[in-house]
Amino acid sequence: MLTITNTPNSTGVKISGDYFDLDGLNQAIYQIIGDEEKYYDYAGARMRILGVSFEIRHAAQGDRNIEKVFNGLHDHVKKQHGFIAPDKNIYFSVEILWPEILFTALALKDYVRLHRKESKNPEWDIHLHTVSHFQALVLDCLHGQVQEEEFQTILKAFSNTLPVEDYAIQYIDFLNLKYIGMTKAQREKTLPIVAVKIAMQDQDYLSFRQEVLAAANPAKKSIHEISIQAEYPETIMW
């Protein structure tokens, strides 16, 4: 079963599941976002989604965390059916920073909308349901970390957000790095603010975007091609 939980230091979330959970999610994401040239105005958002997808894929391959999870097989069940079997399954997991996973859930909303328009029978499209379930898990995990009033504000923001076409994805790096540098208490206090800022594309974001565009224009590059002058730490205290 796919699960998403808050990390001990509230730095991000841990996405967990068996191989089939993670691989199925990854395949669904690929199907929803489509080929590279399909939605060019969403190239930046696609890059961020693929970054998370990359981590999920490597988790499924056993390159990240491996843990044992109780599978519900009690001793009396083993005796009843007369066989010997382990009572734990192997699960794989990977951590993703909170700003990153929130933007991914939000950006996938646009892709779900676009894919739904093209699907002949969207109500039966398993990939749409898989991605929607993933998005719901992200928001449900967030729900457990914030006050109810704050969560309702976040839900409203996520429901009425602007499209992420030509999004200045460098802003997510800015939020990620700022978030990493906080204490646990600061992260817990800031998390609902970060969620709303990502969803609403507020004045801070718009000012940041103008700076990125100013750097992009002389170089004649697309907004998503401008790199941010900052590096992530080698070790993150999750």
Rank of each mutant, 00 (worst) to 15 (best):
A216W: 09
P218G: 13
Q186W: 04
S16M: 06
N9M: 11
H129R: 13
D63C: 11
P86A: 11
P8R: 15
E211W: 06
S53I: 07
H127W: 10
D202F: 00
L25N: 10
L114R: 08
H74V: 15
G72S: 06
N160E: 14
L50E: 01
T7I: 12
R57L: 15
K189G: 02
G34K: 04
T153D: 01
I126Y: 05
E36S: 13
V69K: 07
Y179T: 09
L191Y: 04
R48V: 06
I90N: 06
N176Y: 09
E37N: 11
K14A: 05
Y205V: 13
Y179N: 12
G12F: 08
Q80A: 07
L22G: 03
P218T: 15
A230D: 04
K178V: 06
A45T: 13
M237S: 04
H58C: 12
I198L: 02
V112Q: 08
I15G: 01
D23K: 10
S227I: 15
A28R: 07
E100Q: 12
S16K: 10
W98P: 01
L106F: 04
A199I: 14
I15D: 00
I198S: 02
Q229I: 13
G72M: 04
K197M: 00
Q145R: 11
G51Y: 12
S119C: 10
W98G: 01
Q135S: 12
F158T: 03
S222V: 14
Y19G: 01
Q31W: 00
A43K: 06
G34Y: 05
K156P: 00
T130V: 06
H143I: 11
Y205N: 05
L213Y: 13
F103P: 01
H129G: 04
K156D: 07
R48L: 10
Y91I: 07
R209G: 03
K197W: 00
N9K: 14
Y91W: 02
N160D: 13
N65G: 08
L139N: 13
I223C: 01
P163N: 11
